[in-house]
């Protein structure tokens, strides 16, 4: 279960500042449980965007956005509409945003911050593509995570170490920032790279009291229940 919370509307609108026609994709997996994906959240988001003067071209919800194959099939089926969108707003965890970004050459933007992996991780087998940093940066890069794709987790552009698009740490590992640059260039969105990104707030990664008390975190109490049975 990847816990997500919706970004403040102000931040979402800032990320979509240059984009008028928006297509919504919501996740029916973990995000739906958190009320940050799924049909209801999508409809609510549609209303908010329209109130802010955006045009919402359409909306689909997909069972598990971390399933890239499923994303591709559903997106292809809706391509007639999606092709006219300036940006796709994705209501899911960070993995879902990256998966949508990987199957379509369109700017993608996260509606949520991923804050915590509690037990069941959707259909995605690892946390290595999304660290649940609590402040999703995928909107600045259009779908490639600078924290997990860059070995140094740099937020303001590449270091000087990449050689021919490969990372200095491992010549067989692609440089995340090279890929971000290439993607934004292809999308005509290089302007996004000019923005200064503040240092991370690591407090966002610490589980709060509510999470600590939930069954997704609290291994100890779970054991107690079994003993009592």
């Amino acid at each position: 279960m990847i816990l997500t919370e919706q970004k403040p509307m102000k931040e979402i609108l800032k990320l979509l500042n240059d984009e008028k026609n928006i297509f919504l994709i919501g996740c029916n997996g973990c995000a739906e449980v958190c009320d940050t994906g799924g049909k209801e959240a999508c409809l609510k988001m549609k209303g908010e965007l329209e109130k802010a003067g955006k045009k919402v071209l359409g909306c689909i919800d997909i069972d598990f956005l971390c399933n890239k194959m499923l994303d591709r099939i559903r997106i292809d089926r809706n391509m007639d509409i999606i092709k006219n969108a300036d940006s796709i707003l994705v209501l899911s965890c960070g993995i879902g945003v990256q998966a949508v970004g990987a199957v379509i050459e369109k700017p993608v933007c996260p509606a949520n911050n991923s804050v915590f992996v509690g037990g069941f991780q959707g259909l995605w087998p690892s946390t290595e593509r999304c660290e649940e940093c609590g402040k999703c940066f995928l909107g600045l890069t259009s779908g490639i995570c600078p924290i997990t794709a860059c070995t140094k987790g740099l937020l303001n552009g590449p270091c000087g170490g990449a050689l021919k698009g490969m990372c200095e740490v491992d010549k067989e590992r692609e440089c995340g920032w090279h890929n971000i640059y290439e993607r934004l260039k292809k999308l005509g969105k290089l302007k996004k790279l000019n923005m200064f990104v503040e240092a991370r707030d690591y407090r966002k990664m610490m589980p709060d009291k509510k999470t600590r008390g939930s069954k997704y975190y609290d291994i100890e109490s779970e054991e107690e229940v079994i003993v009592n049975e």
């Binding site: 303001n156 552009g157 270091c159 170490g161 740490v169 200064f196 240092a199």
Partner: peptide, 23 residues
């Protein structure tokens, strides 16, 4: 920014990179 730890002689050390060079 600094070369990554894995290029040096303390390869298992923690890469900090709390700030990047711009920050």
């Amino acid at each position: 920014t600094g070369d990554h730890n894995s290029l040096g002689d303390h390869q298992g050390s923690m890469p900090v990179f709390d700030l990047d060079s711009v920050q």
